[in-house]
Amino acid sequence: MHLREATPADHAALHALWAGTPGIQLRDEDACAPFCAYLARNPGLSLVAETDGRIVGCLLAGHDGRRGYLQHLAVACGYRRRGIASALIAAVLQRLAVQGIAKSHVFVLDAAPEALAFWRARDDWSERGDIRVFSTVEQIR
């Protein structure tokens, strides 16, 4: 397995991986143009895992200058339980640390039991019960 930075050329393969991963909910922001803008705004932070030239995992990451945010951690079904997700997380957190970001967050949908179990089983992450997330979508003209 080889980790490398995600590129705009990876979008179609990543979108297919996300679409086939239970617990990942695709939205308009996952289209190619917003994906490319995200990579440009957060250079070097989003990674893909490849095996035999095939993308088998990914993790998008960015930060707001204070906190890191991990998104769309996905590993193809036939490649799970091989440490790929852990390797992606470790590499991304290290890249965030180099940029001075020590604390990171991940948002997991209640409707994603596999993802919830994965994050709850990690000793280095703790589930918060003190906040709720509120969202809005503004029309871009």
Rank of each mutant, 00 (worst) to 15 (best):
R120H: 11
A87G: 13
A87Q: 15
G44P: 02
F134S: 08
V56D: 09
P34Y: 07
L116P: 05
E5H: 07
R80T: 07
R80F: 05
E5C: 02
I131D: 02
R54D: 02
A37S: 12
W18R: 06
R27M: 14
L88V: 07
R82E: 12
W18A: 14
I24Q: 00
V106P: 00
P113M: 05
P43F: 09
R120M: 11
A85C: 08
D124N: 10
L3V: 02
C36Y: 00
G57A: 13
C77D: 15
I101F: 01
A31G: 12
E114S: 04
L88W: 02
S86V: 03
T21S: 10
V106T: 02
G23D: 06
F35K: 04
R141K: 05
F118N: 01
L88S: 05
E5W: 00
R120P: 00
A111I: 06
A37C: 05
D10K: 09
R27S: 15
D64M: 04
A61K: 02
S86G: 15
H11Y: 04
H11A: 05
D64P: 00
R4F: 08
V48A: 06
A117V: 14
W18P: 10
R132G: 01
P43C: 08
R120C: 13
D10G: 11
R66E: 08
A61I: 01
V108S: 06
R141E: 12
A61V: 06
P8I: 07
S46Y: 07
L3W: 01
R27A: 15
A97L: 02
I89R: 05
R66C: 08
I84Q: 04
Q139A: 15
S126N: 06
Q139D: 15
A31T: 09
H105N: 03
I131R: 10
P113L: 11
A97V: 05
C77F: 07
S104N: 07
V133T: 02
R82I: 04
L93W: 04
A40H: 13
V92C: 14
T7F: 00
